[in-house]
Design a protein around this nucleic acid. Structure first.
Length: 650
RNA sequence: GCCGACAUAGCUCAGUCGGUAGAGCAACGGUUUCGUAAACCGUAGGUCCCCGGUUCAAGUCCGGGUGUCGGCUCCA
């Protein structure tokens, strides 16, 4: 069997026969073409990733990746992480290496070193790393035994590597692969590009702390973030895009558009300006109306509760760290902290639920609340509007019978989809199952997970499975949306909960005249108004659609003599519930137009002799150039138009 | 909470080697009454985040605190 032939199928369906042992690189060169051979970085034989230098050992479907593919880019970014690590160890002896994967936008490498890396260090590392690329070191792969691997890393004093190596072998690996370039060697699953020269350019971005293996009890490592591209031009384009994205940052736009502010006296709590409040209220009212149309009861409950409630709900035990406690000087308790601001609405709703005897005929009973919540978040996690200590959710708790779960979840996913699509947001759904730390019997979890999953499957929505990511009381479906710099934020959520009704001993009288336990669904669509508004600001880059815009139209006059008609226009539009303002500045028209444009007001209404004469306005749409000028319109016609655009789209 | 960086006028930002702070915009006053992205002249505005230290002298150097930012852990 010296010339055993393998059957290698290509993506176009054609297949080639080559002797076993032919390397991937040779296969590509002889069977496909020299051009692809030069461009090739690595390949996949079925699902197995192979370096070009690896011999083909079995038949299968071969896919070759070049610099034209996402996979190719991910590969050189991983290569780049190796190059950076090698340079860091040369420039900063004594630094220990850990891991360095590629990410969405680049890569990182985690190092253990006492002294922090400074921005100057980064610049040095970056320069030296790019120098390595020019040397075009080949990546050399080698398989070693457990003993060889451990011996190598013992010698190098790489404690973290040893830990990983031990783990790999403990999981049953027979050998371990090492990759070297130049005189630097690292343990790595691979694959890698043929040589360092295939990485076009490396750019280091920043340093940050990260815990070893993501556990805060472990030593803190220094994570160097960077990115790599095939071409300097691609890097420049990416940097420019990043720059553009930063212009949409909700913190920047929030200040520029005068929507909200923060003050050191209340870290993590928002000051909403009038404009911001108008936006907030537009969202709030839209949600409120939608809930009312869909069988929800809107309720308001107290913001502060005696700890009797928190002990009952389990928050006192599990969540106390995150709650703002309120001292009661009259209290007989030692710590006087007998009250707390509510961090969630659920316990309040349960109290309301149990205030009356409930019948199965009332179910599903849906409580909707937009009350203010407080959570004492760790200082380091606060971030603009996306992570705050005081916030409002478009929260709801739905009490229902188990048989109603599928329908209710289907209704919910439909609502969520409708709302997100009305904003043009693209989202991903995640199905999160039981976490290691949980309450409730496994049998309940089985039912809950099955129920939620069945309902989700029924809706046909694409979703990602997140095992172990559920809430401590039940599995959930989360809906994520990205911000302008690509960070994903959880907005909507649907959480199924059998445990809490049990804990609160909630009941309803069934058709059989017996007491039954309801199931609970926690759900939010916006998530929190604060975070949702952050996402919207970035999504629209501050150019809100009319129905959301804090100011929907700004009236500007050509000269002071037009002021009287301007006021009349203002009155008429305001009477229709539209948000309109007059620019009183003693400026030329051009300047007022510019101000209105910078304020991103959807319509600027120009009023001069012509408009006074014709009892109308000349609207100008937000935007550039001649087409922005809509010409003359009667006041009636424009007010119709604006009112129709101000309608809630869901 | 942890690691790192940053904090100067309402905003955006200069401020060299340690020698008591400056611009543009905004605000205010005046002139201008103007047709689709910036009229002109003037005035005022500062606990250089806070507390302490070094120094003849601190916006600048050092220590502590607060806040913000980038991550990590956590989370809507």
């Amino acid at each position: 069997m010296s010339a055993e032939l393998l059957q290698i199928t290509l993506p176009d369906g054609s297949s080639k026969q080559v002797p076993r042992g032919t390397t991937v690189g040779d296969f590509v060169k002889t069977q496909i073409g020299a051009g692809l051979a030069r461009a090739a970085l690595y390949a996949k034989l079925d699902e197995e990733e192979l370096d070009l230098s690896r011999p083909l050992q079995r038949s299968g479907k071969l896919t070759v990746f070049t610099n034209k593919s996402r996979e190719g880019l991910d590969l050189i970014r991983h290569d780049a992480a190796h190059v950076v690590a090698s340079v860091v160890q040369r420039l900063f002896p004594g630094t220990q290496v850990t891991i360095g994967p590629h990410t969405e936008e680049g890569f990182y490498y985690d190092f253990f070193r006492k002294e922090p890396f400074t921005p100057e260090d980064l610049a040095r590392i970056e320069a030296a790393a790019n120098e390595e690329l020019r040397k075009d070191h080949p990546f050399v792969r080698k398989e070693v035994s457990r003993e060889e691997a451990l011996q190598l890393f013992e010698k190098l004093g790489e404690k973290f590597k040893i830990e990983i190596v031990e783990d790999i072998f403990a999981k049953g690996a027979k050998t371990l692969t090492l990759y070297s370039h130049g005189d630097w060697t690292d343990f790595c699953l691979g694959p890698h590009a043929p040589s360092t020269g295939r990485i076009g350019v490396i750019k280091l971005l920043n340093v940050a702390g990260a815990y070893w293996r993501g556990d805060h009890r472990n030593p803190q490592l220094q994570r160097i973030y960077g990115t790599a591209f095939f071409d300097k031009k691609d890097l420049d384009a990416w940097l420019k895009q990043q720059e553009e994205a930063r212009k949409r940052d909700h913190r920047k736009l929030g200040k520029e558009l005068d929507l909200f502010a923060f003050h050191p006296a209340a870290p993590g709590a928002v000051f909403w300006t009038h404009r911001g409040t108008m936006l907030f209220n537009a969202l709030s009212n839209a949600m409120r109306q939608m809930c009312l149309r869909n069988g929800y009861q809107e309720v308001k409950t107290p913001l502060m509760y005696n700890k009797l409630l928190w002990e009952r709900s389990g928050h006192w035990g599990k969540y106390k760290e995150n709650m703002f406690l309120v001292l009661d000087p009259e209290s007989k308790e030692d710590d006087k902290a007998t009250f707390s601001l509510k961090p969630m609405n659920c316990p309040s709703h349960h109290l309301m639920y149990e205030m009356k005897k409930r019948s199965y005929r009332e179910l599903p009973l849906r409580y909707h609340t937009q009350d203010v919540l407080h959570r004492n978040e760790a200082t380091g996690v606060l971030s603009g509007l996306t992570r705050v200590r005081q916030f409002q959710q478009d929260d709801a708790h739905i009490y229902l019978m188990e048989s109603q779960i599928a329908d209710e979840v289907a209704r919910l996913t439909t609502l969520i989809k409708r709302v997100y699509e009305a904003f043009g947001l693209t989202f991903t759904a995640k199905f999160a199952t039981r976490p290691p730390q949980r309450i409730g019997a496994d049998e309940l979890w089985d039912r809950a997970e099955r129920g939620l999953r069945d309902a989700l499957e029924k809706t046909g929505l694409q979703y990602e499975l997140k095992p172990g990511d559920g809430a401590f009381y039940g599995p959930k479906i989360d809906f994520d949306v990205s911000d302008s710099i690509g960070r994903k934020w959880q907005l909507g959520t649907i959480q199924l909960d059998y445990a809490v009704p049990e804990r609160f001993e909630l009941g309803y009288i069934g058709e059989d005249n017996k007491e039954h336990r309801p199931v609970l669904i926690h759900r939010a669509i916006y998530g929190s108004f604060e975070r949702f508004i952050a996402i919207l600001i970035e999504h629209f880059a501050g150019n809100f659609p009319v129905w959301l815009a804090p100011v929907q139209a700004r009236i500007i006059t050509v000269a002071d003599r037009h002021f009287e008609w301007a006021q009349k226009v203002h009155e008429v539009l305001q009477a229709r519930g539209l948000r309109v303002e007059i620019d009183h500045a003693s400026e030329k028209l051009g300047a007022k137009i510019r101000d209105a444009q910078l304020a991103k007001v959807p319509y600027t209404l120009v009023i001069g002799d012509k408009e006074v004469e014709g009892k109308g306005v000349s609207p100008r749409k937000h935007g550039e150039g001649k087409e922005a000028d809509l010409g003359f319109s009667t006041l009636d016609a424009f007010s119709e138009k604006l009112a129709s655009e101000a309608a809630v789209p869901f």
